[in-house]
């Protein structure tokens, strides 16, 4: 059972309080009707499914109720970090450099 840091509550809490909500940084197009079938298909169905670093959404569903973003390693399952919805995709390399 993972421990997850909610960036809104600023607390690290057990996994059962949270719900997974799919890949992050996939914004709904401003005008879906303007998209081609191909573009709409890509928005709707195509996900990166990486081996390793995955940007994904979680909801603190049994806590504050907020959706937030996370970086998680799909090999180890472990969270690298979490951050608030709406914040830009963190640059992992920059983070690593800053840590060193």
């Amino acid at each position: 059972m993972l421990l997850i840091h909610c960036p809104y509550c600023d607390d690290t809490l057990p996994e059962p309080e949270f719900a997974y909500a799919g890949e992050a940084h996939i914004a709904r197009p401003a005008d879906p009707m303007a998209l081609s079938d191909e573009e709409w298909k890509n928005f709707l169905f195509i996900r990166s499914n990486p081996r390793g670093t995955h940007y994904e959404r979680w909801r603190h569903i049994h806590g504050c109720g907020r959706f937030f973003n996370a970086i998680r390693d799909t090999v180890s399952d472990k969270f690298v970090m979490t951050y608030r919805a709406g914040e830009p995709r963190p640059n992992l390399d920059a983070l690593k450099e800053a840590a060193e």
Binding site: A19, A21, A27, R28, R57, R59, I61, G65, R66, F67, A85, G86
Partner: peptide, 12 residues
Amino acid sequence: NMMEDYLQTEWP
């Protein structure tokens, strides 16, 4: 949950 998702993340 679906309403909250759209409200919080698409149309804040």
